[in-house]
């Protein structure tokens, strides 16, 4: 079975100072001073794929794991970590376009790579990514490849004995379970306990000397993509929204008094208590 995980790294936005949110002429806040982290959903997707591989071990068929990203910025540390976690291939498609809000272009670049693979893959994505919060890439990828897309996935396990997967989705108050086969795109949502495992020193030593693959978009006219992007939609403004409330601090002499003041002066009159 071939499993491809599409992931993205983005600046850790919680570490931004309020002043950093000012945008420049290109409508970009300055994120250079904060560390880069994995998109939270992609982290779950990367871990889910590893668990599938673990579960498939000991069976006759092998699982090939590919981690795939379209990027211009990310430091090699995370890519190397993925090799250490035994992703068979870690591929970075290099692009200099500003793709923050252009899921269509990202999906095109991902699809072009995926089409070069011989076997039908199971493709994992996250449901949404920073900085664009587009919520589109896996859906467009599935459309371009002409394959189904399931979202938001909360669990995917190997179904014995063939290579089907049992996929669970939480849709607005319904839990849907279905058995599917590759090719399929699975967009991973909020999954409890799905942090990406950390490679040990031994894991890292084992892949010493191996490097992630950096490739240029194959058979794709990047200029053409940029032109298509401009025809469809355009970012016209990007702003912070400040709406400060008048905050009253409640301070008693100790916590018991604070709680009592809070209850009697504030809470009691609200919410019909």
């Amino acid at each position: 079975m071939k499993v491809i995980v599409c992931f993205k790294e983005a600046p850790d936005l919680e570490r931004m100072a309020p002043a950093d949110w000012e945008t420049d002429a290109a409508l970009k806040p300055d994120t250079r001073f904060v560390p880069t982290v994995l998109n939270v959903y992609d982290e779950s997707a990367l871990e889910m794929a590893l668990r599938l591989r673990d579960a498939a071990r000991g069976r006759e068929k092998t699982t090939e794991l590919i981690a795939l990203t379209v990027d211009s910025v990310s430091p090699p540390r995370m890519l190397k970590n993925l090799l250490a976690l035994q992703y068979d291939r870690v591929v970075k498609i290099e692009s200099s376009l500003d793709l923050r809000f252009h899921a269509l272009a990202v999906a095109k670049l991902l699809a072009a790579f995926i089409k070069t693979q011989d076997d039908a893959p199971v493709i994992f994505c996250g449901v949404r990514s920073n900085e664009g919060d587009n919520g589109k890439t896996p859906l467009l990828l599935a459309e371009m490849l002409g394959i189904p897309c399931i979202t938001p996935v909360i669990d995917a396990t190997l179904a014995a004995p063939d290579e089907s997967l049992d996929v669970t989705v939480d849709i607005d108050g319904w839990r849907v379970g279905q058995r599917v086969r590759a090719p399929v795109v699975l967009a991973v949502g909020n999954v409890a306990g799905s942090s990406l495992r950390i490679p040990t020193l031994k894991d890292k030593m084992r892949v010493k000397g191996r490097e992630p693959e950096m490739i240029l978009p194959a058979g794709i006219d990047v200029e053409e993509i940029a032109a298509v992007m401009a025809r469809e939609e355009e970012l016209v403004s990007l702003k912070t929204e400040r709406q400060k409330r008048d905050t009253a601090f409640v301070r008693g002499q100790d916590m018991a008094e604070t709680a009592a003041i809070f209850y009697n002066q504030y809470l009691k009159k609200r919410a019909g208590i």
Binding site: L13, M16, E233, E234, L235, S237, L238, K239, E241
Partner: peptide, 12 residues
Amino acid sequence: VYSGHLVAEFQL
């Protein structure tokens, strides 16, 4: 966008 930090306007 930006996980709720910024508000964006797009021309469609």
